[in-house]
Design a protein around this nucleic acid. Structure first.
Length: 791
DNA sequence: CTATGTCCG
């Protein structure tokens, strides 16, 4: 009943909104008229002034000034342009790269120093050539040359290219390693890999004895793994004088990198890109969606040739922007054809592939993207970039143990990366929908590195298993906030991975074996004792991939209804299990996925993860048993690893966090959402602040389970005799053991102070992070009006 | 009572 009412009212509202919006738009266009200048608010740029300085539009609302010429650091991996490739041999192509001119100098400086920072601009050829130069210079005679990449695709494609250049089969002299795929052999001399792989390797072999040289490519992106490797490799090099470390960096932070590694030399390799004109908005834009739509259309109607790339923070904005461009273009007479293509990572791959297809002759492409187009995928033929100036960032707040996924202004580094996307195949233009003063004064030079804004439980576990005694003294380039480290250690203590002295327990050592977040590893370990490991294995696998359910625009109701068929009323975890079992019963069919609004790609990955985890379990002699249909056992097992993330029912549909007392909400996608069934206690997998504090993926639990499984948090005041009595009392008398919590924290704090006294080196620096929700700390917090756009 | 940026093991 409740469901029907909810769906019904929603339908009506949506429909009404749509009608209203249409009406309002018509009004808008009648008022605005159809004169080009009026609609765009900008004069047509027949002859865009490329020399800089001159205003492009004089009388419009959106107004730009050419400010500077700009060539960016962009990744130009391996692909040479096709006609060039036809004419030249591989060797000639290699010699044409800018890095070739400085080859000997580079090798000399590497010979003379253990660590070198290389500033390699886009198109310099560093990624493909550095490894080969080291190989040619004899470094592979006593070990491998390793090269890390932040992304898998990069590791694979570069390895392929280099193996062709050397003239061997991929996987022999030149190979790569990524999760699920080790394409190397005993013959391998040059090994490309993701930075996560090298990190895992250092667990087995802390001095990296197999390597004679390690190149950390794209280090300026500062991925979590890169930052941990920084600290580790710095020490490895001091122990092993025969190991060479080469770290690539962007110009802006090369000095910082050099200082971190001990004032090591910086070597600069020029790049080869086309100039990009940067045009800033003269006035701040109130609504970046509106501004982007106008700018996109203005470029399109200017008659200049070339595809357009628009950067937006998220899926919703992308959809609104795309729709608006299409709609407004339809209202114009004789407008040239334009294909508008959205792209973001959650988009199914067949739709993603569209952006790489060539548009029909005379049709311009306009790609509307998240920052996926900033580094992860490169589209050729982009001449115009429109940059809204925002991105979404996940920031972890250790105090309340919650992530916040919110829109933040981008950094200058992001902005430069984005504009560089217009200069890949020819000179281009970048329209920034923010003022030059905002760029200079309000934007950070670089994005806050991931290590300072993420949950560190995994990093802490890893470093502990590497024998790092005091994590607060570990040499990070940018140390994470102390709160964050302490919180992670505390969390690991709760999970039984660390003992009271902060050392790794046997459970902790077992947890390290799994490429999972600690709580998930714990769940897997506990499940073996509770005889439901086969089922938990599936749930864990489902939880370690991104979104399973697909909710396409325009078919929201339909997909929601299909999803409800899978829903297990008391648990999202069990709902996931249910989905997997049904998929399995349908022979892992991709058609079945499509019919049920489920991401095929995600499910395939679940299967891969499951198989990898299963191998580890077998190797660790953990038994695989299913509990059949006794799903209470499964819920109890989940509770055993997540009791620290519990919420108590407060009112109808209202929950409060048991530990912090903070109100939390069920996410609308939860099986428990909007149902008549409202359990007294639930545990949640994740707490994320978006528009509200949402618990994502929840399972109902018995109050007494919490007391039984999380005795350091909860206790039942008086134990009754019967089960029902127990349960009743548990519901009434659950106490949050705040004192014990703070005791553990004090213990950690005391330890830290003790260490501080021993070494007053001041290596620990706490960096304040912009607290989510504090508007005064985010000067460029955008006015988000896209939902009401056009009204 | 309503929605999630990008990666990695």
């Amino acid at each position: 009943m409740a469901i029907i009412a909810r769906k019904g009212s929603q339908l009506v509202r949506k429909h009404r909104e749509q009608k209203e919006r249409k009406k309002a738009q018509h009004k808008h266009w009648e008022l605005a008229g159809t004169k080009l200048g009026d609609i765009m608010g900008v004069k047509k740029t027949e002859d865009a002034d490329r020399s800089g300085g001159k205003a492009v539009g004089e009388d419009g609302k959106v107004d730009y000034r050419a400010e500077q010429k700009f060539a960016d650091h962009m990744r130009d991996k391996s692909e040479a342009s096709s006609d060039f490739a036809k004419k030249k041999t591989l060797l000639q192509q290699r010699q044409y790269l800018p890095i070739f001119a400085v080859r000997q100098q580079l090798l000399n400086i590497i010979r003379d120093n253990s660590i070198v920072i290389v500033v390699g601009e886009t198109g310099s050829g560093k990624t493909t050539q550095l490894t080969q130069y080291l190989h040619e210079d004899g470094y592979t005679s006593y070990g491998m040359v390793g090269c890390t990449q932040p992304r898998r695709v990069a590791a694979m494609s570069v390895a392929k290219r280099v193996s062709e250049e050397i003239g061997t089969n991929l996987g022999e002299e030149v190979g790569y390693a990524i999760r699920f795929e080790d394409c190397t052999s005993e013959k391998t001399l040059i090994k490309y890999m993701t930075d996560g792989i090298l990190l895992r390797e250092s667990l087995r072999e802390s001095d990296l004895d197999h390597y004679s040289a390690v190149i950390m490519d794209e280090a300026h992106e500062r991925s979590l793994n890169t930052d941990v490797l920084f600290g580790l490799l710095r020490d490895v090099v001091s122990r092993r004088t025969d190991l060479k470390l080469i770290v690539t960096s962007a110009t802006m932070d090369s000095d910082k990198f050099a200082a971190f590694f001990g004032n090591v030399p910086i070597f600069h390799i020029p790049g080869r890109t086309f100039p990009v004109d940067i045009l800033f908005s003269k006035t701040p834009q109130e609504d970046y969606v509106e501004a982007a739509v106008k700018q996109g259309l203005q470029i399109h109607l200017s008659g200049l040739i070339g595809d357009i790339l628009i950067f937006m923070p998220g899926q919703e904005d992308i959809e609104v922007t795309s729709d608006q461009i299409v709609e407004r273009l339809e209202d114009l007479e004789n407008a040239p054809a334009l294909t508008v293509l959205p792209i973001y990572s959650q988009l199914p791959s067949d739709l993603q592939a569209k952006i790489f297809q060539k548009a029909p002759d005379g049709v311009r492409k306009c790609i509307v993207a998240t920052n996926i187009a900033e580094t992860s995928l490169t589209v050729d033929g982009i001449m115009f970039v429109v940059d809204a100036g925002y991105c979404k960032l996940k920031v972890f707040n250790p105090r309340i143990g919650m992530d916040a996924l919110q829109v933040y202004p981008i950094s200058q580094a992001n902005a430069n990366q984005r504009s560089g996307r217009a200069g890949r195949t020819g000179p281009g233009q970048c329209y920034r929908l923010y003022t030059q003063s905002a760029y200079k004064n309000e934007m950070l030079t670089t994005t806050i590195p991931e290590i300072q804004r993420t949950n560190l439980a995994n990093v802490v576990l890893l470093l502990k298993s590497l024998g790092v005694q005091d994590l607060l003294l570990f040499h990070f380039m940018d140390p994470p906030p102390e709160d964050n480290m302490l919180n992670s250690m505390y969390q690991l203590w709760i999970l039984g991975a660390l003992d009271n002295t902060g050392s790794l327990t046997p459970t902790g050592r077992l947890m390290v074996e799994f490429p999972l977040d600690p709580a998930l590893s714990k769940m897997l370990i506990v499940s073996c004792d509770m005889a439901c490991s086969a089922d938990i294995l599936i749930i864990v696998s489902m939880l370690s991939v991104p979104a399973i359910f697909y909710r396409p625009k325009g078919r929201e109701e339909e997909s929601d209804q299909v999803r409800e068929k899978f829903s297990v009323p008391e648990s999202d975890h069990l709902t996931y299990l249910n989905v997997y079992m049904q998929w399995k019963n349908n022979n892992y069919s991709s058609n079945w996925c499509n019919d049920h609004f489920i991401h095929t790609k995600a499910m395939r990955k679940v299967r891969e993860v499951r198989s990898q985890l299963k191998d580890i379990m077998v190797q660790q002699r953990m038994n695989l048993i299913s509990c059949g249909s006794d799903w209470d056992i499964i819920r109890k097992c989940i509770c055993a690893a997540y009791f620290h993330q519990a919420a108590k029912l407060k009112g109808i549909g209202e929950y409060v966090n048991v530990r912090t007392g903070m109100p939390c909400h069920l996410h609308p996608t939860s099986s428990l959402f909007g149902m008549g069934y409202t359990p007294d206690y639930i545990i949640y997998h994740e707490l994320v602040m978006t528009t509200k504090e949402y618990m994502q993926c929840v399972t109902s639990v018995d109050g007494e389970w919490l007391a039984e499984l999380g005795p350091m948090f909860y206790s039942v005041k008086q134990a009754g005799k019967s089960r029902t009595e127990n349960r009743r009392r548990a519901k009434e008398d659950i106490i949050n053991m705040e004192e014990e919590m703070s005791m553990a924290e004090e213990q950690l704090q005391a330890r830290r102070e003790e260490q501080d006294k021993k070494t007053n080196t001041g290596t620990v620096k706490v960096v304040k992070i912009c607290t989510p929700g504090r508007k005064d700390e985010a000067p460029m917090t955008p006015r988000r009006t896209p939902a009401r756009f056009g009204l």
